[in-house]
């Protein structure tokens, strides 16, 4: 089964995505925050990642660059962020994110976009 890693410090986000994605047939692993996210990245090989940008214990963009540069993985990444600045979107895409969804979000939209990113 396709596995998805959701990295966000907000338990509301991880709860929602876990339920909605699982009911769409994916296996979901959640990581609360940067540190947990980093650990999850290093110890598992998810097929796709949903990543929050502003976490209290570390920046999502740092995690993204860790994935693309240090771990050299091409896992599709969907960035989920409340940030309203266009520059943030651009930076995320430049650093290797495949898609960007703003918060507040629609879980069905996130599911649909993830489906497009996966083979």
């Amino acid at each position: 089964m396709t596995s998805i890693l959701v990295v966000d410090d907000d338990p509301a986000v991880t709860n929602v995505l876990k339920l909605f994605l699982e009911s769409s047939g994916y296996a979901v692993v959640t990581a609360q925050g940067f540190v947990a996210g980093k650990k999850a990245l290093e110890s598992s090989l998810p097929d796709a990642i949903v990543l929050d940008l502003n976490m209290p214990d570390g920046l999502g963009l740092d995690l993204l660059s860790h994935l693309r540069v240090q771990l050299q993985r091409k896992t599709p990444v969907l960035v989920l962020s409340g940030n309203r600045q266009e520059s943030t979107v651009l930076r995320a895409l430049e650093m290797g994110a495949n898609d960007f969804v703003r918060k507040p979000f629609s879980p069905r939209e996130v599911t649909a976009r993830l489906r497009k990113l996966l083979p």
């Binding site: 502003n54 409340g82 940030n83 309203r84 600045q85």
Partner: peptide
């Protein structure tokens, strides 16, 4: 705080 941070 979160609102402010998200809007720079």
């Amino acid at each position: 705080l979160k609102d402010l941070l998200e809007r720079d």
